[in-house]
């Protein structure tokens, strides 16, 4: 189980490195797709089927959006050389970040022991014990998302609505035409 998860994570890391380093934008987008589907399988192994479903679906949509953004442009390959010095500095700095992050993990409980086991008054314990009786939903994730923490979900819906609204406003065709007309005058 843990070994399988580790292999999956290594696969994801390799995919991410290829996605960041390759010069072809389309290949990069496809590698991100591989990373996302690997994440979906990892969620399934971690006993989170809801998150796995939503990860697959969202991944497909992100892929469609990104491919549409890159494929119709004539400039799909990256030109220009890399700055060697800047890259070395960045790698050293990121290594320091990595070391500090490793120090943080020493204070976390080990893998496989969630906080509900150690914390007596954890909210998740209440959700697990009385979720079915309170909300009538057998799926506890749904009962947390839409009953106990429904205002969080309201905020999420608002954020999603605003983001889509912003994207529509940015991509609107009319305003651009008007602006071009103004520039021609």
């Amino acid at each position: 189980m843990i070994e399988l998860l580790g292999l999956l994570l290594i696969f994801m890391i390799i995919g991410a490195i290829i996605a960041v380093e390759t010069r072809d934008l389309l290949a990069s987008v496809i590698c991100v797709g591989a990373v996302g589907f690997g994440a979906s399988i990892a969620f399934l192994l971690l006993r989170a089927p809801d998150v796995a479903i939503i990860q697959i679906v969202v991944e497909v949509l992100v892929l469609v959006i990104l491919i549409r953004a890159t494929i119709s442009r004539d400039l799909t390959a990256i030109s220009g050389d890399r700055e060697f010095f800047g890259m070395v500095v960045a790698i050293v700095l990121l290594f320091v970040v990595f070391l500090f992050g490793m120090r943080v993990f020493e204070h976390l409980p080990p893998f496989g022991q969630p906080a509900i086991e150690t914390l007596a008054q954890s909210p998740a314990r209440v959700y697990i014990e009385s979720g079915l009786r309170d909300t009538g939903a057998a799926n506890l994730v749904t009962s947390v998302l839409l009953d106990y923490r429904a205002y969080d979900t309201l905020g999420e819906a608002t954020v999603l609505f605003t983001a889509i609204l912003g994207a529509l406003a940015i991509l609107r065709k009319k305003a651009r035409k008007r602006k071009e007309d103004r520039e021609e005058e």
């Binding site: 949509l61 469609v64 959006i65 549409r68 309170d134 909300t135 009538g136 939903a137 749904t142 009962s143 839409l146 009953d147 106990y148 429904a150 819906a157 999603l160 609505f161 889509i164 994207a167 529509l168 991509l171």
Partner: peptide, 25 residues
Amino acid sequence: ILFRNIILVWTFISSVLAVFLYVTL
């Protein structure tokens, strides 16, 4: 506990069709 789940779960469907709007654009 605020809601019984069915209605709220159902409303989410429409909130998400906006994605369709974005992708077609």
